[in-house]
């Protein structure tokens, strides 16, 4: 059986907000290690890989690996019944036909209990090869969200060019064109806002802005985001949390 108690229930609410528009149904794979999820969107253009490590929960108990098939829209609806400061406990027994959720307020004088019906989801698990990326950009997650949203006014896609000087996000469309360049600035006072670039080779890649904007729904989970790129391989957008991560992979656009 699974028992996982999360002191900051708001984290789970934010995680659901960050994935529920990209994927509808997914298995939460529970094991000793924690709770993981991997799923592609319907069009197989983007993939979400989530890990909530066991040490983020107190206590965390999972005797036997379990796959909890969840409709994410339903789960996010139930999570809306939890207060932002509530402690959330997830429980499932080995038959895994329901997921029990308990929300306790901080005064511990209001306890609400919900049960969500689970479903059988036959999803294939994909092997994600270890990749050494040609360019890795670390930047403010709020800045990345702003750039994606701003450029979406101009075009459906963005060209990302990374050199050792900086990273340029450019978009061209019917009404005109726009570009935002962030210079590498490791010396800024505010570490959280620094743009850092690790570069083996310059890269120039095109991606759908619709998906990137969707990924930025994870912004409340982390102040930093990393963009890992190599020519003609999927972009990796990673938000690191205290005990885990949310990674998005996006297939590039090719051709002129």
């Amino acid at each position: 059986m699974l028992e996982a108690r999360l002191q900051t229930g708001a984290l789970l609410k934010k995680v659901l907000e960050a994935i529920k528009e990209l994927i509808t149904d997914a298995n939460f794979d529970c094991s000793d290690n924690g709770i993981a999820l991997q799923a592609m969107d319907n069009s197989h253009v983007a993939l979400v890989a989530l890990l909530l490590r066991h040490d983020g929960f107190e206590p965390y108990r999972c005797d036997r690996s379990l796959a909890l098939g969840v409709n994410l829209v339903s789960l996010s609806k139930v999570l809306r019944c939890a207060g932002n400061d509530d402690i959330i406990t997830l429980k499932a027994d080995d038959t895994a036909d329901v997921l029990s959720l308990t929300f306790e307020n901080t005064d511990n004088d209001r306890i609400s209990e919900y049960e969500l019906k689970l479903m059988d989801i036959d999803s294939e698990h994909l092997g994600i090869p270890d990749t050494t990326y040609e360019a890795v950009v670390q930047m403010s997650s709020a800045e990345f969200a702003r750039i994606c949203k701003d450029l979406q006014v101009l075009s459906d896609s963005v060209q990302i060019d990374v050199t050792k000087e900086g990273v340029k996000f450019g978009a061209k469309g019917e009404l005109g064109s726009g570009a935002v360049t962030l210079k590498q600035n490791g010396n800024v006072d505010k570490e959280e806002e620094a743009t850092l670039i690790e570069l083996q080779q310059n890269v120039s890649l095109n991606f759908s802005l619709k998906y990137l904007v969707n990924f930025t729904k994870a912004t409340p989970l982390a102040s930093r985001v990393s963009l890992s790129m190599s020519s003609e391989v999927p972009l990796l957008v990673e938000y690191k949390m205290e005990a885990g991560y949310i990674r998005y992979y996006l297939a590039p656009k090719i051709g002129e």
């Binding site: 253009v45 994909l126 090869p129 992979y249 590039p252 656009k253």
Partner: peptide
């Protein structure tokens, strides 16, 4: 015109 690729050719089912 650019075309959108998919992830199928990059990631293998395990």
């Amino acid at each position: 015109q650019q075309s959108q690729t998919t992830l199928d050719s990059f990631f293998d089912p395990t």
